[in-house]
Design a protein around this nucleic acid. Sequence first.
DNA 1: CGCAAAGATGAGTGGAGCTCATTAGAATGC
DNA 2: GCATTCTAATGAGCTCCACTCATCTTTGCG
Lengths: 214, 214
Amino acid sequence: MQDIMRVAAQVFCEKGYSDALTAQIAARAGVVEGTIYRYFPGKRELLIRVVEQWYERILADYDQQLRGVRGARARLRFLIWRHLTVIHNEPGMCRLIFNQLRAWPEYRRTTVFELTREYTRRTLAVLQEGVDAGEIRADLPLRIVRDMIYGGVEHHTWAYLRGEGDFAPDEAADAMTELVYRGLARAPPQSAAEATLRRLEALAQRLERSTAAR
Amino acid sequence: MQDIMRVAAQVFCEKGYSDALTAQIAARAGVVEGTIYRYFPGKRELLIRVVEQWYERILADYDQQLRGVRGARARLRFLIWRHLTVIHNEPGMCRLIFNQLRAWPEYRRTTVFELTREYTRRTLAVLQEGVDAGEIRADLPLRIVRDMIYGGVEHHTWAYLRGEGDFAPDEAADAMTELVYRGLARAPPQSAAEATLRRLEALAQRLERSTAAR
DNA sequence: CGCAAAGATGAGTGGAGCTCATTAGAATGC
DNA sequence: GCATTCTAATGAGCTCCACTCATCTTTGCG
């Protein structure tokens, strides 16, 4: 049965879900087609089991690694970078998850779903750490930030997953972390700085006039 | 043929792509199955044509509306809000695009693909307007911002598209615009800037006192 | 009215997931 | 050491669904 799952993982990744034929998986695994259906209720369930096994492997050392990273900003960057890196290293499986698994009604009762929830929940927790430490403002819903992070990662890697073009996990992680962390705007505090600047400029002019008058 | 496309749009939206049977579409359209294949090379192409027609309708008044919105920030919010609203109003079609169409190899030669590119290109243009107007910093790649916007919208609406839960386009648009515009962080650069600002203010006060004293 | 061109028909085909009666092999009992 | 039972593997066949094609019908034109 482990043979079947190993072979199925290969064939699914190579050909995609619908072009991967059960007959082909059986042949490569050295069994006959019907044998697959002794262990799996159907092709869909086979994919689900394969992806679940893979995903558990991927997340195995995840918590330990995260525990080693200190500071809300670095932790946040790690989460983003990690997601980008997994996609970059294993595009086949990620394509299966994004294009097939998540579109199915069975998805919600999958451990992939549960583990993903856990994963994104950790992102919220890290953001909250930042709020508690006074590093991040809390006047916007953190859920939206999380959605923009995960959605952004997946949108950014979309072309790569189609086999068109590439992306750099490190650079993208830097940019996204920076964006989330410091934002894009010249925000209200800066207008305070501008006011101060104007006061100083006015003072400078007055001083210049008074020194010139002497 | 318009009948077939109208009926197909309905059935696809109701049942999803693979549960929508060609026989069913034909029956509801009052023709026989083979007739569909006189006008369309196959079921996939039928969906593509249906979605293309819909998408053109959706984007018909789009540019005109955008032209009516002034200011980079308001324009950006409009783009985000618009995307959210379309998803909220027509979940069936959006589900078909996100789950089926975009996963197919044919997608790239679709006008849906072209129009979407146009759509996101406009977002980059609006961001660039903000940079030119001095409203937005340009020291981070705008492509990443765009990816976080569109990815964020889709990630945020994902549960809704599955028929689980709901979301509020206006609130989400506000939050995302705010996030992109002013950022989240009381970040290191800003705390440094704040320290500098306090020193400058102190300096200004000293100078003001000394000039006043004369 | 005759004829040709275009359109519609529905029985039939092919392919892929899936089933099940049968067989082979292993474990257990006496 | 043979018989029995229980489990696993087999592969021919079934079903479902997209798709095809020879045939029939309607329309347009002289």
